[in-house]
């Protein structure tokens, strides 16, 4: 996103809307820091600019990734849908993507509200490669070699996005090993990630939950529950 200096009246009304603080000012101008801007479109959609100075230039590769991962109104070419991830457990009652004895993970890099570069994303995917099954339909998976976790195009590393979700699964028996690995990797990051664990239920209980708690990973009091109304039931 950019600001047309000729139109801008320096009212600064747009500055508070930017989720990553990329709209800045110096003595003469209000401008958008192109390294920090994640192309989420919030400033443009906010309607804060009354003189139409904010505009969206055409984005080429690899900068277009910023919009695809950050702006929920831009469909991602790898999934064909808007949003940053897949339907993960939302349709698991029909797809059977996560089966009994398996644990799914979603590592949302940059969330909450910090943003991330793909260099940071790669630190995590490299650590996970060879240990987990990456979700093939996920937008991050489409950018990496699942065998090594490396980005296929090194130019992607410097791109920044509001968040990017790494989705994968493993067996329940290896779940704790992966949680410990993620904790270790998090200590070497320049950003944050939000983490969630997906598991099939048995009798209103979540079998992997007890193992997580025993190992010191305490889930939050709120979560997401697939109530099982989808058909045909997997």
């Amino acid at each position: 996103m950019k600001i047309d200096e000729d139109k801008c009246v320096r009212c600064r009304q747009c500055m508070v809307y930017c989720p990553v603080g990329a709209i800045k000012e110096d003595e003469d101008t209000v401008y958008i820091d192109q390294d920090l801007c994640v192309e989420c479109g919030v400033c443009l959609r906010s309607g804060a600019c009354r003189v139409g100075a904010i505009y969206q230039p055409q984005l080429g590769w690899p900068r277009i990734l910023r919009a695809q991962f950050s702006d929920p109104l831009v469909p991602h070419p790898s999934t064909g849908i808007m949003g940053r991830g897949t339907s993960e457990m939302k349709t698991n009652d029909v797809t059977g993507r996560f089966r009994e004895g398996e644990v799914g993970f979603a590592v949302e890099m940059g969330r909450p509200g910090v943003s991330t570069s793909f260099a940071e994303v790669e630190k995590v995917t490299k650590a996970l490669a060879g240990r987990v099954e990456f979700e093939p339909l996920n937008p991050v998976t489409s950018l990496i070699d699942p065998e090594t976790g490396r980005l296929r195009d090194p130019d992607v590393r410097r791109e920044r996005v509001l968040s990017a979700i790494i989705e994968f699964k493993t067996s329940e028996d290896r779940g704790l090993e992966i949680l410990r690995l993620l904790k270790e990797v998090s200590e070497g990051l320049e950003t944050v990630f939000s983490l969630c664990v997906i598991s099939r239920c048995r009798d209103f209980e979540i079998p992997f939950r007890e193992r997580m708690v025993t190992a010191g990973f305490q889930p939050r009091i709120n979560g997401k529950t697939n109530v099982g109304l989808g058909r045909p039931l997997a």
Partner: peptide
């Protein structure tokens, strides 16, 4: 999570949830 289980019971939806997604907060910087 516990309230949603109760909602399911009271709404008479199935014997138990199909799949659960548990948040573990955030890590890193």
């Amino acid at each position: 999570t516990e309230e949603v289980k109760d909602i399911m019971r009271k709404a008479g939806v199935g014997e138990y949830p199909h799949t659960s997604n548990l948040a573990l907060g955030f890590m890193g910087r």
